[in-house]
Amino acid sequence: MGELASLRTPRGIFATVILGLCAFMPVLAPALDEPFYITVFARIMIWAIAAVSLNLILGYGGMVSFGHACYLGIGGYVVGIMAFHGVTNGFIQWPLALLASGLAALVFGAICLRTRGVYFIMITLAFAQMIYYLSISVEKYGSDDGLTIDFRSEFGGLIDLEERTVIYYVIFFCLVGSLYLVHRVVNSRFGMVVRGSKSNDARMHAIGHPTYRYRLACFVIAGMICGLAGILQANLEKFVSPDMMYWPRSGELIFMVVLGGMGTLFGPVAGALVFLLLADTLSGFTEHWHIIFGPFLILVVLFVHGGIDGLLGRREAAGG
């Protein structure tokens, strides 16, 4: 794929710079005397993982899920609830959390993918709200106030997440892993079918591909990657709350993907980075930062085609 192969295009340079920033932040931040940036970038990378996963179904698959943040919440809550019951072993927590978010994606996807267009948007939103209200109504796990996690996941002494640099690089590794996974999925035969179904589902069906199953599998993969982001967030913040999956989070995830460039491998990472840095900066000026951010969002949607990726120059018309 062109976007990985050439590092000399503006797109390649931009991607390299961002990944480089992420990779060296634990060294850079103390050198700049801003150690706080390590946490900022850890958060950005977690949102980037979630955005990358949404991009898989939204950008490549054309499935406009307005409830993607709920998998973030499910992944996080599984970790939180297990820790609450004293199970802090990551080898048990993480697979179970991934399983739970995958299972939720399977059930929701199976119902949502029976529909198209605006129905799909509304239903994914409604299911995410259902999980949100569920998390609020269960008092045992903190309802509105959320659930504090006393200990991060333990990996039998192999990896110590309590160490700031260690958890940072675990998140970095997960981000790179997700990007690689999405890259492989999208360029596989499986990914081709999903992308084909985005542009013409009837035709893909006619040439013999059971597109429903392909799209559902894609939906589940995206749900699980987003669940991973939830696991990481729960571990980083040592806290989970219903707010993680409140519907504006899903809207923000969509915006990150659109801002970065839909259907491009690296776009969502750039989108997450710009979104969160901008939100951070604006909220530093005024607590009413949405009054600036809202119009910005609308203007980007109306006038910036292809997001940041589109601004970096025209995409080569190369195959795929």
Partner: peptide, 10 residues
């Protein structure tokens, strides 16, 4: 969806 989401924020 995105543009009207922006309207809600405003």
């Amino acid at each position: 969806v995105l543009a009207t989401f922006g309207l809600i924020l405003i």
